[in-house]
Every structure is written in C-alpha cells, then in structure tokens.
C-alpha cells in the first residue's frame, strides 16, 4: 500500500509543485507555514480538488493523471480527519462513525456494531448515542478518527488534526493518535504547522515552503539539521549559511565562526539559543566565538528570556530571567555574545 504523488496546483499566488511517496505503514508529515499549500496538497490527495497537473497513484492504481484519469473522492479508499472534526451535527456519534460503512453498502446492524467497536477503541464507548455537539473537542476528534479508520482505508489523511484542541487535550489525543497510526497498515499523510506533531507522529517529514519541498528526512534529521530559516525557527535553532574551511566557517552574512567539526565548502551553521551567553564586557578566556552586538528584542519564552541580537552575526540568545535582570539589558543596549565552538553544529548545505 503505497502512495506516489506528483501534485501541481496553480491557484492565485500559490504555485504548488510537490513530489512525494509514502510507503506501506509509513506516516509522512507535511510541515510548513500557513499558506504553503499543505491543505491544498491534502485536498488533491483526497480527490476533493482536481490539480492542474501531475499524477497520483495509490498502490499502483492511478487515481489522477493529468486529467485523463480522475477517480473522485468517494470512489477512493481513504479516510480523512479534519482540523475541526466535521462530524455531521444531525447524526449521532455512532451514525457518524458508521457513515462510511453505510455508503459502502454495509447493512445497518453490522455497520453499527463495527462503529461501536471502533468507538470503544478510541475510548468513547457509551457515548455513541450523543450528538457531536455534546462531545468535548478531544472526544469529537477521536470520534472523527474512528469515523475515518472504520472503513480500513488504504490512505489516511490528517489535516491539522490537533491544532483546534487546547494544550492539555492535544497531549492526550496526540498520544492516542500515535498509537492508532502505529497500528494503521496503510499510508498516512499528516499535515501540520506544529513541529511537535510531526516529530511525535511521523516516520518521515517533508517541509513545504511556498509550494516547494525544501527539506525531507526523518524527524530527528530535520530537527538536528534544518535547512531553512523556517524549519530552524520551528525546532529552536538559529541557522547561519557560510563557507567552511577546516574548523572555521566564514558566514555569508559576514563574520567567522569556529565550529566543533571539520567543514569545507558551502555549509550551514546551527546554533542553539541556550548555548549563547551574553556579557556586558568582552569576556576573557576560552570561548573563541565572541561578537559585539546590540539587543534588538527581548521576549519571555518559558522560564528564559529570548534575546534577539543585531550585529554582524544575527544570533538569538536564551538567558535566564535572573541573569537578564542582572545584566540590566534594555533594547538597543550593547552586549557581547559568545558561544563555544563545541556547541556549534555544522553540516553541508
């Protein structure tokens, strides 16, 4: 059970051109900023939106090929979970879950029985007679998952399935979703703008920006070695492109960084904000990477204060609230930023 797709959509400012394959039992996360074309991509994969070009094949069966073949959504073997669950408000929860079986010709009694069984699997046993409006957000999303999976689809599409949930519910639903995805035998595509979803649920991540794939890899690879500013920011790194020469990198934006490894040619330098230290006076001693900078902005970020620095090397530093107060920093204040060479990651561009 494999999904192989090349999707081209031209729509206003959006020019989407994405190639992707998802293997049997694999979960692919499509990560990207709003407006990158993620949801459009998913609608094409579902058959809800005819693309302008390309080919979509499921298990070798072409379901779309440049307009010559077009299998409409209702004839495809798929399940889809939407951001705001879209349970039918006029049907009971059980009827909602049984819906896909009923449209495929299963009789009422067995369809209901299968629906009840799936409701139990998503821990909603006994709530089947309720209306969707009587469920909490997390319960509704679990019912929507059951509704998508009850027909045992070959392809499961998840469109921001957790982003409408509050933080605590999201945690439990994410854990449950993870369990069901692990059991799911078909191909699954998850669209999200939340890196945590992608990291927790996916086997592989595709990053889409402005309609193009800019990076693909396992969640760990993408988190460790982001290739665009967007991904770097998502995973909490500062990304600096440059050219390596031994253990130093000359940055494209100016400045030289000593790095922890050997590097030659075009490279990315990634710096974790927590490893950047700030001083009022130029520090003496071990760190070889010391730059003068000005504090551009400071925002509380959990238990630390995230300081964006303006200077030759545009870094971000996370300092504890205490040291931020001790330094007495105000926007525009001159500081010295330093980072140990061992804390600087370098990898080829």
């Amino acid at each position: 059970m494999t999904l192989a797709a090349h999707v081209v959509v031209q729509r206003g400012a959006l020019h989407l051109d994405v190639d992707l394959t998802v293997a049997d039992g694999e979960v692919l996360a499509v990560l990207g900023p709003n407006g990158a074309g993620k949801s459009t991509l998913l609608r094409v994969l579902a058959g809800l939106l005819p693309p302008d070009g390309g080919r979509v094949a499921l298990d070798g069966d072409t379901v779309w090929d440049d307009g010559r073949d077009h299998v409409p959504a209702h004839e495809r073997s798929l399940g889809m979970v939407f951001q705001d669950h879209l349970l039918f408000p006029h049907l009971s929860v059980t009827e909602n879950v049984a819906f896909g079986l009923r449209t495929r010709g299963v009789r009422r009694a067995p369809a209901r029985a299968a629906a009840e069984e799936w409701l139990a699997r998503v821990h909603l046993a006994g709530l089947g007679d309720r209306r969707p409006g009587e469920l909490s957000g997390g319960q509704a999303q679990r019912a929507a998952l059951a509704r998508a999976l009850v027909v045992d689809p070959r392809l499961l599409l998840l469109d921001e399935p957790l982003s409408a949930l509050d933080a605590r519910t999201r945690l439990t639903v994410r854990a449950e979703l993870r369990r069901h995805l692990a059991e799911f035998a078909g191909s699954a595509v998850l669209v999200s703008h939340d890196p945590v979803d992608a990291m927790a649920l996916a086997d592989r991540v595709v990053v889409v920006e402005d309609g193009r794939v800019v990076q693909t890899g396992t969640p760990a690879e993408v988190a460790r070695r982001p290739r665009t500013d967007y991904v770097a920011r998502l995973v909490g790194l500062v990304l600096l492109p440059g050219t390596g020469a031994g253990t130093t990198v000359r940055l494209d934006g100016g400045g030289v960084v000593s790095v922890g490894g050997e590097a030659t040619g075009p490279v990315f330098v990634a710096v974790r904000p927590a490893s950047v230290s700030l001083y009022l006076e130029r520090p003496a001693g071990s760190p070889r990477n010391v730059w003068p900078a000005r504090l551009a902005a400071a925002t509380p970020h959990g238990s630390v204060v995230r300081c964006d620095l303006a200077g030759e090397v545009p870094l971000t530093a996370d300092v504890t609230a205490t040291s931020f107060a001790e330094l007495g920093l105000v926007p525009g204040a001159p500081v010295w930023a330093s980072v140990k060479a061992a804390d600087v990651t370098v990898y080829t561009r």
Binding site: L48, A73, H74, M80, L86, G100, R147, A148, L157
Partner: peptide
C-alpha cells in the same frame, strides 16, 4: 460535503 465524499458518499 467534502467529509461525506471522503467517506464514500457520491
């Protein structure tokens, strides 16, 4: 109606 289509309804 999109949701219904993904659930096999013409």
């Amino acid at each position: 109606e999109d949701a219904a289509a993904t659930l096999g309804a013409d």
